[in-house]
Design a protein around this nucleic acid. Sequence first.
DNA 1: AGCCTGCCCTGCGAGC
DNA 2: TGCTCGCAGGGCAGGC
Length: 280
Amino acid sequence: MPELPEVETVRRGLAPVMEGATIVDVDQRRPDLRFAFPQKFTQRLKGWRVASLDRRAKYLLAHITSGETLIIHLGMSGRVTVDPKATDDQPQSKTHDHVVFDVDGPQGRARVTYNDPRRFGFMDLVATDELENCSHFAKMGPEPLGNQFSSEALSEALRGKNTPIKQALLDQRVVAGLGNIYVCEALHRAGISPKRQAKSVIGKRAERLAPVIRDVLGEAIEAGGSSLKDFAATDGELGYFQHRFGVYDREGQSCGICQATIKKLVQSGRSTFYCGTCQR
DNA sequence: AGCCTGCCCTGCGAGC
DNA sequence: TGCTCGCAGGGCAGGC
């Protein structure tokens, strides 16, 4: 599911109930998701407070007063919901509710539930001052909405890459947080073919692409993300950026820019949607 | 080192 | 109606 805008939408929904809240209880209902949970997962969380809620690329970060950071990755189908009214009496539990956090914060008690049918998601605990060097982030590229990201930084990261630009943008070392949807959308807006060699996206093309990546992500965050099958915000609200897709999942429909028919191809096993007329 | 493929897992829609 | 197949937003390991 979730690319950067969806994870940011989740972060914004969680922040009011999680930030400053004490983790009263953690119910870990299985030994693993995609990976095993870290050792003594629940014990390392219980009783501590969440200092702040953060995000890096597609990863949700809860900085804990113990000095560790809880890392949550939603994989493809992970979903986090908040039930502010939940009490200890008979919470209704759904299938694939794998972890339940009971928190007590400025806004009172709340139950935060992690649900993930495909279990491609995972959680980890890492020392907060080692976060940048941890395995998840050590090689990761710049945040596309941050100051480190620019057309110069982008063309530098793409320099010499003998791979289609579509695949290069999915590489989290080039820019962090893009997934299949927003790569397709950004390339369409920038008028760049997904098949173009990454190393040729320099100069004017990189100057078009970098700002467009920011725009697409920013607009998607404002729209509450894109809800295809599983994504929803923490309160169950659906995002609506999917209604603004220029190309994604629009094969056979007409391009909003030039009216040509949107095409689909498969690149390294993943669907690419594009306009063969205005993307060059 | 860079690049590619396959795979982890469940659910859902299309097609027969 | 009921099955089988292909495909899905991500990222890792193992191959070349």
